[in-house]
């Protein structure tokens, strides 16, 4: 209130120097892997330079590109369907308490089922093609989106809702003008969490099914080769990890841009 900033806040440091530190940290990490690999500290670990070279080479490898493309496709379709299903359902459950109470039981008993446990059953039902991955991605990605949408709608400020209703707006207009915008940051957060879960399910399904195309299949075969192709596995992991980081960073940036009002309201603390 009256005291000036007394503690050194990490946020006060210029962004450029934080980025420099991040890059330095990443380089140091790579150097560590390089040294460990070269010194043979861990016999299974190739040096970082080899992993990165292999990762770069894979970009021009048509087989790998097909694997990666299939995975991204399954991931994207699954996420899109999950969002199309979960957001309307979340809005319905979050704004109509009777339906919420009525469906709560199903939701509460379906959600704890670990999605990977469904892989064998769904594989029996519909085979191990693209549809298997898409189905499991949908199942896993629905929950975070549904939950966050419901949570966001329940947290809508009743004063804001009532003030619009007092101007003669109907239920649907209030939903459109007040409830949805104020729940939007939560929906977005749910979607961001879902992208991570969807990636886990894509890779898990591909590894368990163990056939067809997909980055998981690529990694699995590199693993069961004799001797195991550690460079292939880790190069594949580098690409999957980078994909996850980039998707997450883009969504965080979008959240910051779109919902600046939200961050200032909660003090940026969350």
């Amino acid at each position: 209130m009256n005291a000036p900033v007394l503690t050194r806040s990490p946020l006060a440091r210029p962004r450029s120097s934080r980025w420099a530190r991040r890059v330095t940290g990443a380089l140091a990490f790579a150097a560590l892997v390089e040294i460990a690999g070269r010194a043979g500290l861990a016999e299974f670990l190739p040096p970082a330079s080899e992993i990165l070279q292999r990762a770069a080479a894979l970009l021009f490898d048509e087989g790998f590109r097909a694997h990666a493309g299939t995975s991204v496709l399954a991931w994207a379709i699954g996420l899109a369907v999950a969002a199309l299903v979960a957001v309307p359902l979340g809005v319905l459950f979050g704004s109509v308490p009777v339906i919420d109470a009525a469906t709560r039981a199903i939701v509460e008993f379906l959600r704890p089922i670990p999605s990977v446990a469904l892989i064998p059953l769904v594989a029996l039902l519909i085979g191990t093609g693209l549809q298997l991955r898409v189905t499991l991605v949908i199942y896993a990605a629905v929950w975070p989106i549904l939950y966050n949408t419901m949570y966001g709608l329940r947290g809508v400020d009743p004063v804001a809702r009532e003030s619009l209703r007092s101007y003669g707006f109907g239920r649907l207009s209030v939903l459109w003008w007040v409830s949805l915008p104020s729940a939007a940051p939560f929906i977005m957060t749910g979607f961001r969490l879902a992208t991570g879960v969807a990636l886990i399910l894509t890779v898990s399904t591909e590894i368990v099914a163990g056939r067809g195309e997909g980055i998981g299949v690529f990694i699995y075969f590199a693993g069961i080769a004799v001797p195991a192709r550690m460079d292939d596995i880790l190069a594949g992991v580098v690409w999957v990890g980078l994909f996850g980081v980039v998707v997450n960073a883009l969504l965080v940036a979008a959240e910051r841009r779109l919902f600046r009002w939200h961050h200032t309201r909660v003090g940026g603390g969350s």
Binding site: R18, R22, F44, I215, V237, L242, V245
Partner: peptide, 25 residues
Amino acid sequence: DYLDGVLQFLRAIPPPALVTVFLVV
């Protein structure tokens, strides 16, 4: 600050992708 980037990367890796590494080790 130094480790933030590395950790974000490690967290973004879907764990099942590394299971073969653990099998080999």
